[in-house]
Design a protein around this nucleic acid. Structure first.
Lengths: 130, 130
DNA sequence: CTGTATCCCCCTGGATACTG
DNA sequence: CAGTATCCAGGGGGATACAG
C-alpha cells in the first residue's frame, strides 16, 4: 500500500474491485444512511425524532443503520437517561461531519444534472419502445 | 443541508425521502456502476475489455449496468461493426465525465478517512464483545 | 421511549445455457 | 464478440410482536 502517491492500486487503476472506497460507497449507498446523516447534519436527534424526521423508515432499519454509522465512527450515540423511559441522542462525530462535504458534492451534482438525466431517460425510452 | 434558493423539497429539508439525489445515489451506489465509470474514465472500452478490466463482474451485471448508465445518459454506446463478430464501444458522455468529480470527492474522502473508520470499527468491537 | 426478535417476501445478482 | 433468457440462492428490508 502506497503512502503518499495516491496512485496505482488504491483506487485509480483498473483493479478497483476491492478498493477501499467501495467500503464507503456501500455505506453511503444504503438508502437510509444518507438520509440519517442529512438529518443529523442539522442537529442532534433522539431516536423518535429521527423516526419522525424520516417518514418511510422502519424501526428496524433505523436501529440497524444507526448501529452501522456508530460502528464506523460517523455517528455518536449518547444515552441521556438511564431510567425509564430511556432517552438516547444521536449526533454526527467530527468524522461524520467531514463526510457531509463529499455528500454535498453528489447532491449538488444531482440538482444540477438531474434534468439532463431525465431527458436522457426519456430519449432512451423514445428510442427503445417498451 | 441548506435550504438555499432551490425549492425546499428537492433535497434541502427534512423531507428528503424522495429527493432527486436518491436517484443518483442509487445509481452511483450500485456496486458496479462506479467501477465501470472508473474504467471508462480512462478511455473507451469494448464490452469484452470492460469485462476483463473488472474481474468479478458477470456478463449479466455488466450488460445490465451499462444499460442503466446508457439510459441515464452517462455512457455512450456505439456499435462499431454491424457484422459478425460485432464490436461495441462504450465511453463516458460529457454528463458521465462530469460525475467523476463528485465520485472523486468520495474516493478522496475514503482514502483520507478509511483508517479512522477502521479504528472506529475496532474500537466498537472492543466495546461490544460479540 | 428505545430498542430486539421473528417471520417472510421480494429483488438483486450469480451461474449457466443459448442466439445473432 | 456481444448480448439475451432462465433458474435459483441469499440477503435486504418490511411488518409485527415483544422486552427493558
Amino acid at each position: 500500500m502506497e503512502t503518499t502517491s495516491t496512485s496505482a492500486d488504491d483506487c485509480g487503476d483498473l483493479y478497483l474491485a476491492e478498493c477501499p472506497c467501495r467500503d464507503i460507497l456501500d455505506l453511503v449507498a444504503s438508502k437510509w444512511s444518507t438520509l440519517i446523516i442529512g438529518v443529523l447534519e442539522e442537529e442532534p436527534h433522539r431516536f423518535g425524532q429521527l423516526r419522525r424526521a424520516i417518514p418511510g423508515i422502519t424501526q428496524k432499519m433505523l436501529t440497524q443503520t444507526l448501529r452501522r454509522l456508530e460502528q464506523d465512527g460517523l455517528v455518536h450515540r449518547e444515552v441521556l437517561v438511564e431510567m425509564r423511559p430511556p432517552q438516547v441522542e444521536y449526533s454526527l462525530t467530527a468524522l461524520g461531519e467531514s463526510i457531509t462535504e463529499p455528500l454535498a458534492a453528489i447532491r449538488d451534482w444531482s440538482e444540477q444534472h438531474l434534468p439532463h438525466v431525465r431527458e436522457a431517460r426519456e430519449a432512451f425510452e423514445a428510442r427503445q419502445p417498451a
